[in-house]
């Protein structure tokens, strides 16, 4: 029976995406090896064990506090080789999307990136991913790939319940020296304390109908009431009303939350490309012919400046009973 290696990003806590992958790995019947790389990440090993890891490989060092493609690739390559796993899973993020292809190349293997469907069994792995901006999907077949790397979009798989009695064997790895050709000089903190758009389970997005950046505060209020992250359309980001980091769409972020609320967004193809994977879409627009309504689950024609504050009110009433 094959082993499966789950790469876990070393943050304060395990991301939901990592829990999803540990759950899928455990359910496959394979032996699960988890890998942690970062600074002060040892504490996460116990939680990884509760979600199914039998062994946790840990590279914990102050030199690994900030992401470096060079030292991380070297560390992960050593870990995967040592694990003997033929499948490596990771939750899609700016770190894993940077890291996995490089490590896969080092192991002469292929990557299925940005997948939305994963079928992992004891002897095989199948994945499916969106192409052409979500206008179709295709199955990824690995050919002549000794290790199969799969990067899954977050929020696509269920999270199992933790087994508080489960423990794992930990193994420490010393950090590599690296080639010294590339150094992470600085990580400039972002201003947002909210869940990132790419991982958010609920998103409230604003488009040109918001009229200016100032008006986004009504979306912030709605987002605060339901624990959502605020996004925006390209027109709005290009106009400088909000930073580009908030842009959802083909040239922005691809998101797949459970609930996507689009306020004052007409629904250009470029925007739909980034959010059509959302499970439930709510469209609020004053133009009944806006293309967004063709993609929406629920549609509200009207003035968003009246509707959005009312929604905030109603949600507060319903959720805080």
């Amino acid at each position: 029976m094959g082993k499966v290696f789950v790469f876990i990003e070393g943050l304060q806590d395990l991301k939901k995406g990592s829990l999803e992958l540990l759950t899928a790995a455990k359910a496959s019947g394979r032996e699960v090896v988890a890998g942690l790389i970062g600074a002060n990440v040892k504490g996460l090993a116990a939680k990884a064990a509760q979600y199914g890891a039998k062994t946790v490989f840990i590279a914990d060092a102050s030199t690994l506090a900030a992401y470096n493609p060079d030292t991380f690739a070297e560390t992960l390559t050593v870990m995967i080789k040592e694990s003997g796993a033929d499948v490596v899973l990771g939750s899609s993020s700016s770190l894993t999307r940077d890291l996995f292809p490089r490590v896969a190349a080092r192991l002469d293997s292929g990557v299925a990136s940005d997948c939305t469907i994963l079928q992992l069994t004891s002897g095989d792995v199948k994945a499916r991913r969106p192409l052409y901006a979500g206008k179709c999907t295709a199955e990824v077949e690995f050919v002549g790939s000794p290790v199969k790397f799969v990067l899954m979009r977050p929020n696509q798989l269920p999270v199992g319940s933790p087994d508080s009695a489960a423990t794992a064997t930990n193994k420490d790895f010393s950090p590599p020296a690296g080639t010294g050709k590339i150094t992470n000089k600085e990580v400039v903190k972002g201003t947002s304390t909210k869940t990132d758009l790419t991982e958010a389970n609920v998103i409230v997005s604003g488009g040109r109908g918001m009229q200016n950046g100032e008006n986004f505060k009504i979306l912030e209020e709605l987002a605060n009431a339901i624990g959502a992250t605020v996004g925006a359309s390209r027109a709005v980001a290009d106009a400088g009303w909000v930073p580009h980091s908030m842009q959802v769409g083909q040239t922005g972020k691809t998101v797949a939350p459970s609930l996507y609320i689009a306020a004052g967004i007409s629904g250009a193809i470029q925007h739909l490309a980034g959010m059509s994977g959302s499970k439930v879409i709510v469209a609020i627009n004053k133009d009944a012919d806006a293309p967004i309504f063709q993609k929406a689950t629920y549609g509200l024609v009207g003035d968003l400046f009246e509707i959005v504050p009312k929604m905030t009110e109603e949600f507060k009433k319903a959720l805080h009973k």
Binding site: N68, I182, N184, G190, D196
Partner: peptide
């Protein structure tokens, strides 16, 4: 420089070809 989650930015310095 690259932008990562939450609007944070990572600044890299590189020696030689890249």
């Amino acid at each position: 420089e690259r932008e990562v989650e939450g609007g944070a930015r990572e600044v890299f310095e590189i020696q030689g070809p890249c």
